[in-house]
Nucleic acid binder design. Structure first.
Lengths: 98, 98
DNA sequence: ATAATTATTGGAGATTAGTTACAAAAAGGA
DNA sequence: TCCTTTTTGTAACTAATCTCCAATAATTAT
């Protein structure tokens, strides 16, 4: 009962407002990044409003650091993806089925 | 980069609608349980709407099983708390500060 | 310097999701 | 039956998010 239940974690996705607060990236910017394809929100059947899962929050935080370091948004996205590849696999395996 | 970041996880709380979907407990029932003090939503300064964190989702799922097993809501709540005590400690340590 | 590309931001108007509060209906036990 | 626990309904309201059209910065290229 100590380890994290990935089945549950995979289903826990936060709203864009919460994502903005957690990552300290404005809502407007998150939507822009999604428009451009740098980040993705979970596609759901039930919800019409966006949700961001643990992996994506992690990626956004990492992108933020890379941007402060001088990378372009695209480069930051690519580098973040590369660094989080193992985490992503875990999330792809146990992806939520709404 | 493989392990779960509890700082992040501690901040990822879902809406009541998502909690209902994830746990398969009706929204109305979740509110009733909260009214009675069997479960708690995170108190936030920013949000006026409820949020349930990983620990609470876990507790709700466990309560559901115990209820199906014939326990009363109160008993199920107590038993769930007991079983998840170590997980709760982790969440208390690294509680989110909104 | 001007033009083109990349990145960010604003706001109106509509929609969805969540809130409380009062109330009623089941279900279980003494 | 009576009392308590548990669950559910709904109305009226507030909060949060959505899309879409557009504008402004900032950076890079010619």
């Amino acid at each position: 009962m100590d380890e994290i239940d990935y089945e549950l974690l995979g289903q826990m996705a936060v709203t864009i407002g919460d994502a903005a607060r957690i990552t300290d990236i404005p809502i407007r910017k998150l939507r822009y990044w999604e428009d451009k394809g740098y980040i993705d929100s979970v596609e759901e059947k039930t919800n019409t409003t966006r949700r961001f899962d643990y992996y994506m929050i992690k990626k956004i935080v990492l992108m933020k650091e890379l941007l402060e370091d001088g990378y372009t948004v695209e480069a930051a996205s690519n580098k973040a993806e590369a660094r989080l590849s193992t985490l992503r696999e875990v999330f792809n395996e146990r992806s939520r089925k709404y």
